[in-house]
Design a binder for these strands. Sequence first.
DNA 1: AAATATACTTACTTAGTAGTAAGTAAACAA
DNA 2: TTGTTTACTTACTACTAAGTAAGTATATTT
Lengths: 192, 192
Amino acid sequence: MRQMAANMSETRDKIVAMADRLVRTQGFNAFSYKDIAAPLEIKNAAVHYHFPAKADLGIEVVEQEIEKFRSQTSRWKKLPEDEQVVKLTEVFRRHSQEGNICLMGSLAPDFRTLSPAMQAKVLEMANAIIDWLTQCLEQGRKQGRLHFKGTAHTRALIIISNLQASLLLSRVIGSSAIRDITEQLLADLRQK
Amino acid sequence: MRQMAANMSETRDKIVAMADRLVRTQGFNAFSYKDIAAPLEIKNAAVHYHFPAKADLGIEVVEQEIEKFRSQTSRWKKLPEDEQVVKLTEVFRRHSQEGNICLMGSLAPDFRTLSPAMQAKVLEMANAIIDWLTQCLEQGRKQGRLHFKGTAHTRALIIISNLQASLLLSRVIGSSAIRDITEQLLADLRQK
DNA sequence: AAATATACTTACTTAGTAGTAAGTAAACAA
DNA sequence: TTGTTTACTTACTACTAAGTAAGTATATTT
């Protein structure tokens, strides 16, 4: 009657994937271990076995997101900077199509209700994205491929804000928002 | 031992004000009726007396926000359009100083967990803000006071995204974000 | 073959949460 | 003065949440 313990932590991966989806679709405070356990056909306590506290699960989700982001951006390294920014917007558009919002947009509203350790992880994620985009914009301007006023850091904040919030807005007013916003953003950056 | 029933619905107003604060600081799904009742020194059931279900309370909070927005913007009517946009950014900066995020930023992540009636109210709020800013930008461009590429509607979406998300980002990476972002946004709009 | 570790389940506790039914003091209206 | 409405409180129900302790089948090591 017992299930195969086929290979180690297959269930663990499924739990994290489900949690990731739930954080993005529902918000961190709006899902429970039951919402993870039921569809995977395991028991509540099995989730607690892998992640004793909900914060542990949240931290893992954020950590994997940071990992994913770093590996994606490093794969774009050889592309010209304007193409790299396009890649970034495509990541967000894909999320939008799946009905997901970005982790930052989902976790920032609840930020104060998160454990200190999880807050730290979210900050780490924010900095990873901001630092990468700042670098990319700086470099792109030097190469004459991107054009914008002000510091690269402030421009990075503006662009990330746009991407993040466009996913939120899309959910309320419909998915055309993300397309319109990203297209205009790229046009702004490309024009001298 | 009973309290004065001094004037009608004084308590009701306090409940809505407290709910508004809690939605903005914690998120709609992260506060309970106890969090409202305890600091007001009333009982849980008193909140249910005024707002039978949590969604009723949420709807009232959003409705009052729409009301507040309409009355504010109508007071700016005589100002030049660029000044009106400045006023809008000031509203957001003030929220930032109080540690609040905007209602849209707080409710959009949880959107799918909200009742249909509340979803409709949130959409109404989004449209009120977008429509106003679209009009304002359109008019400002016609007057030669504001400069931007693309449609006024898309530009309105971009600016609202920025304001909204800058409050979220501020919470995670610190409050300098909102200042930097709003200043750059205004500079962009003013420059030919 | 025995001991141990892994990956769970069963069964539970504790602590909320939204929501309700019934009662009550004060204000107000007929 | 009686009746009714307003604005609550008291005391609950039904449910869900996170988290835990103890047991068990399988796999791995010794």
